[in-house]
Amino acid sequence: MVVSGIDITIHKSARKTVSIFVERDGSVSARVPEKLEEEEIEEILKAKEYQIFKNLAEWTQLNQNAVEREYVNGQSFLYLGRNYRLRFVEDNIEGLQFIKNKFLINKEEKHRAKELFVKFYKNKLLTKIHPIIDQYKMQLGVEPKQIKIMELQNRWASCTSNGNVNFHWKCAMAPIDVLQYIVVHELAHLIHLNHTAEFWNEVDKILPNYESQMNWLKLNGAGMDL
Rank of each mutant, 00 (worst) to 15 (best):
P131M: 05
R112F: 12
K148E: 13
S76T: 10
Q64G: 08
E38M: 08
K54F: 14
L187F: 13
S76G: 03
V67A: 00
V118K: 13
Q61E: 15
K122I: 03
W200G: 01
R155E: 09
W216S: 05
N106Q: 11
E151L: 05
F103I: 00
L62V: 00
I99E: 15
K124D: 03
Y79F: 13
W156R: 03
L217V: 02
I149D: 14
V183T: 06
I133E: 12
W59H: 13
S13G: 11
E70P: 00
E108W: 12
R82F: 07
K110E: 14
L116R: 01
M173C: 13
N92P: 04
F103C: 00
V184D: 08
L193T: 01
L226G: 00
V18L: 03
K114A: 07
P33S: 11
G221R: 06
L80N: 06
A157T: 04
E94I: 03
N154K: 12
R15V: 01
H130L: 14
E143S: 04
D134R: 11
F117R: 02
L86T: 08
I10P: 01
G26I: 01
I93L: 13
S76P: 07
K48G: 05
E211T: 08
V184E: 12
S161I: 11
L152D: 09
E143R: 04
V203K: 01
I93M: 04
E198M: 08
E43K: 15
D91E: 15
Q64T: 09
I20P: 00
M214Y: 09
K16Q: 11
D225V: 12
R82K: 14
E94Q: 09
K46Y: 10
N164T: 04
V178K: 02
D177Q: 14
K205I: 01
K110H: 11
E39L: 07
N55R: 08
K12R: 15
E37P: 00
K122Q: 06
K137G: 04
N123H: 04
N73G: 03
K107Y: 13
L217E: 11
F77S: 02
G81C: 06
V183E: 08
M1R: 03
F167M: 04
K114F: 05
S212T: 10
M150N: 14
